[in-house]
Simulated scan of single mutants.
Amino acid sequence: MPSPQQARAQASAITSGKTAPETGAAPMSQLRALFDGPRLSPGHRRIAQYLIEHITEAAFLSITDLAERVGVSQPSVTRFATAVGFSGYPALRERLQSIALSVLGSTPSTPAEHRSNELQAAVDAEIENLENLRRDFADPDQVIEVGRALSRSTPLTVLGLRISGSLAEYFAYAARRVHPDVRVVTRGGSVAYDALLQSRAAGGTWLLAFAMPRQAQETLTALRVARSAGLRVALVTDLGLGPLADEADIVFATGTGSRLVFDSYAAPGLMAAALLQAMTDADPERTQGRLEEYEQIADQHQFFLKD
């Protein structure tokens, strides 16, 4: 089975016209194949979802009518067509019409069924991401090594800007249970640079960064600041190549779910948990002592509901 990067490259080749979609595939599978490869913005995904749910009608709409139905501008539709590998909307509509005619000649389905299939397809895509991660974990040495390094870095800084902030917050919240000084950075610009420089000045040696699509320019700048300050960088992202990866010492490439309007992060979340596990195993005595101390404080102040 291809890696997430290989799968994206193959899908991108399909949508750009370099490789035709599988002719024997079901019409709806052909339609989804058009939109799987590109890394679409949330606005573009709305257009893709509308086309999937209303293909037999939408394929014959003018660009003006389609934009009005989806609630976007006409330039957005044109940019969407380009993003999925076509020269413009007329070329995309021609391809959509051939798929729509195939749908009309097959067993009828309802928009509700299309939506249900899209949700199932999103789950299937995440299962594939997890399967790829499982194969990566067949050799866990790199995860273990980085977990030890993160455990030794005091302070340990965790970076996640824009939508990646949720993963950074999750990791930092758990890491504080087993590490004495974890600093999380979820604001970009000079605030991030100041935090990174302070972390290095305080003795920190590593930065753990999360960068999910769509990667922010300010994340790239922050990584460069961290590297220039002398911090080593471990990066959890969706691609093993690119400008962000070029600024990292270690890259953990994990696929993200991109079937829905907004990405889902089953595999990156599991990668974060695996790095946390490696940190706890790096210093078992400190881990146990800090966890027991935290449980005592939690009981004393009634942080959690009783079972």
Rank of each mutant, 00 (worst) to 15 (best):
L239K: 06
E247F: 03
L223N: 09
L239N: 04
L241D: 07
T219Q: 11
L235D: 12
V225T: 14
V233N: 07
G240F: 02
Q215S: 13
T237I: 00
E218S: 11
D249V: 05
R232E: 02
S228W: 07
L223T: 06
V225N: 04
L244S: 05
A245D: 01
V236L: 02
A248Q: 01
L241R: 14
L235A: 08
Q217H: 14
A222V: 15
E218W: 04
E247Q: 11
R232G: 05
Q215I: 15
V251G: 12
P243T: 03
F252K: 02
I250N: 15
A222W: 04
T221V: 15
D249K: 05
D249T: 05
E218M: 09
A226K: 15
Q215D: 13
T219N: 08
E247G: 06
P243W: 01
V225E: 12
R224S: 13
L223D: 11
L239R: 11
A234C: 05
D238L: 05
S228N: 12
L220D: 13
L223C: 09
P243H: 00
A226M: 10
L244W: 06
D246F: 04
V251N: 07
V236Y: 00
D246W: 03
A216K: 06
P243I: 00
A234H: 08
G242R: 00
V225G: 11
A226H: 11
A222T: 15
L231F: 06
R232L: 05
E218F: 11
T219M: 13
V233L: 10
